[in-house]
Design a protein around this nucleic acid. Structure first.
Lengths: 162, 162
DNA sequence: CCCCATTACCGGGATATCCCGCTATATGAA
DNA sequence: TTCATATAGCGGGATATCCCGGTAATGGGG
């Protein structure tokens, strides 16, 4: 292995690194805002998604699709919430391979506590960044998160309807 | 705790969740592209930053500032790289609290292997997303990552000069 | 020169995230 | 019906990421 020419490139050229840096920083901000509720960003997102489903309790795979997360990650991340009594997992009798995730009363209560904290973070961020700019940014990001050409193996996981 | 009204909000309203979803998906894409080199996205970013410093070997805190990461995270993430002989950590004799991070010959070689894989991922992504759009997106994201008003405690960590 | 506040880092602990291989269940074809 | 394949989830293992509390070294004020 001969010593190779490694040109020093400009900073911040990597789309992935730029996204990850912003994601880390933004997460600190939202986590700090949510801290009084005892929820982290990811936990808030999961509980919100479960709640959004209303009576149609999602299975783990449904959440994975909606949150653009691996199925194993959902399962892992649900454990602290289950331990703290915010969600329950029960077998789907219509398909005994699946487990349906449901909010407990405590889970709904916790989400209600966290919602105004989340909203305050949203407003504080959008005050600086611009409401319209934020909406456009979210749109771009949703396009990336949902782009099946980036990770073809996952394409078929993106058909959950609504 | 009375049962509370929890309005079901629209999907994808959360700036943080949008960023995290896109970050997860994009990371899968870059990780897949880098896979033949044995490096993950974060490892590639760290090695690139170390290399960018040239002869001025960065300390752990310098990397943390540049990569918008916690100091502990840098230390943790360096371990696999150190174990695999890609970087070394040595005390800074000018300030014995610091540890200077240096690429080994194997580290430079690994980075040289990974660079074309990274470049291919960049191009594939930007082919779909648009080169100009990608540059604008990176600009927005860098603004978020570097916004001291989001996480005030970290403001002073952002003074490393170039 | 000595103390003390600050700074750089580490160790431990927790969540987040992925992959791989395994088991149980479901489903379509023979 | 029976069997091969496909799907849902889990356990284990690895990296990624943060915080907190401790240790060691620095550096300025008295």
């Amino acid at each position: 292995m001969a010593e190779q020419e490694l040109p020093v490139l400009e900073r911040n050229r990597c789309n992935c690194a730029a996204l990850r840096k912003a994601s880390r920083h933004m997460t600190l901000f939202y986590d700090a805002a949510l801290e009084p509720s005892g929820l982290r960003s990811t936990q808030y997102a999961m509980l919100t998604e479960i709640h959004r489903r209303g009576d149609a309790a999602p299975a783990i795979g449904d959440l994975a699709g909606a949150l653009v997360m691996d199925q194993s990650t959902i399962g892992q991340n649900l454990r602290p919430l289950q331990r703290d009594g915010l969600v329950t997992l029960e077998r789907d009798e219509a398909d005994r391979r699946s487990r349906l995730v449901k909010l407990t009363r405590a889970g709904r209560s916790r989400l209600a506590d966290a919602r105004p904290l989340w909203l305050a973070a949203q407003e504080k961020f959008e005050n600086g960044f611009g409401k319209r700019a934020a909406a456009e940014l979210r749109n771009l990001l949703a396009g990336i998160a949902g782009d099946p050409s980036l990770v073809p193996e996952r394409a078929e996981l993106h058909h959950q309807k609504a």
